[in-house]
């Protein structure tokens, strides 16, 4: 589904990604871990098409298409979804309002008919249950006055509504207490299927207790320095990131 080859990127003059290789197949969950500043969020942002980063080399192929050639909106319409680390607040735009536009923009791209108001509301009701989000929140200005947990749940709710092929969760666990974390993870798990894939970007192992990954990659200093199965996450938790840092400065 997703193939990243030797991806290099910088922001202004600073090199951040120095050759990332990653293969993700349908049905898989990949966790990307690493210390602060290792490039995790940069990778997530580049997948979604954030323009503050400049890709200087390598390629990203998504379902056979050159992802880097696509605008952020076309990536979303092809099925890429980014759950934001810091969900934005937009005064005057309700979640329902923009999601209706988004759902129909995606349907139009796929050559499907626009969804009528009744079907949209029905779908919305179903999906609010998946992430246990209060419907009244969705009628309010996006994320304005929401708690940290509500904001993150709202991201997962949007993911449920847009039904992406590839979901990238950028530190979705940050700032969540354990109850909120469980609800969010539970929502993600309900959306998992053999047809879609998830990339979980996280600093801590604890989210991976609830969203169990097939593969774990450790990103350090712009490169994936270790890949393994879920046991790697536990090892990291036990030994800390210094283990990785020391190993890599020693080389």
């Amino acid at each position: 589904m997703l193939s990243i080859k030797n991806l290099q990127a910088r922001v202004e003059e600073k090199e951040i990604l120095k050759g990332i290789n990653l293969e993700v197949k349908a049905g898989e969950v990949h966790a990307i871990m690493g210390p602060n500043g290792s490039g995790k969020s940069t990778l997530a942002s580049i997948l979604a098409g954030r323009e503050t980063y400049e890709v200087t080399g390598g390629s990203i192929t998504f379902e056979g298409k050159d992802l880097l050639e696509l605008s952020p909106e076309d990536r979303a319409r092809e099925g890429v979804f980014l759950a934001f680390q810091y969900p934005v607040e937009i005064p005057g735009v309700s979640t329902i309002n923009f999601l209706k536009t988004a759902v129909n923009a995606i349907r139009e791209y796929r050559g499907e008919e626009a969804m009528d108001a009744v079907s949209f509301l029905k779908m919305m009701k179903e999906k609010t249950k998946v992430v246990e989000i209060d419907e009244t929140l969705l009628k309010r200005s996006l994320n304005e006055g929401f708690s940290g947990g509500e904001k993150k749940r709202n991201e997962i709710f949007q993911m449920a509504m847009l039904e992406p092929k590839l979901a990238v969760l950028d530190e979705t666990d940050s700032g969540l207490d354990i109850d909120a974390l469980k609800i969010v993870a539970n929502g993600v798990n309900k959306l998992r299927s053999k047809n879609n894939a998830v990339i979980v970007v996280t600093h801590y192992q604890r989210l991976l207790d609830y969203i169990v990954p097939d593969y774990v990659h450790v990103l350090y200093n712009g490169r994936i320095v270790k890949s393994g199965t879920k046991e790697l996450a536990l090892e990291l938790e036990a030994k800390g990131y210094d283990w990785i840092k020391n190993e890599n400065t020693a080389v």
Partner: peptide, 12 residues
């Protein structure tokens, strides 16, 4: 906010 809406599939 603009990037967010685009990342949800809404044309610029």
């Amino acid at each position: 906010a603009l990037f967010f809406l685009r990342a949800r599939g809404i044309p610029v």
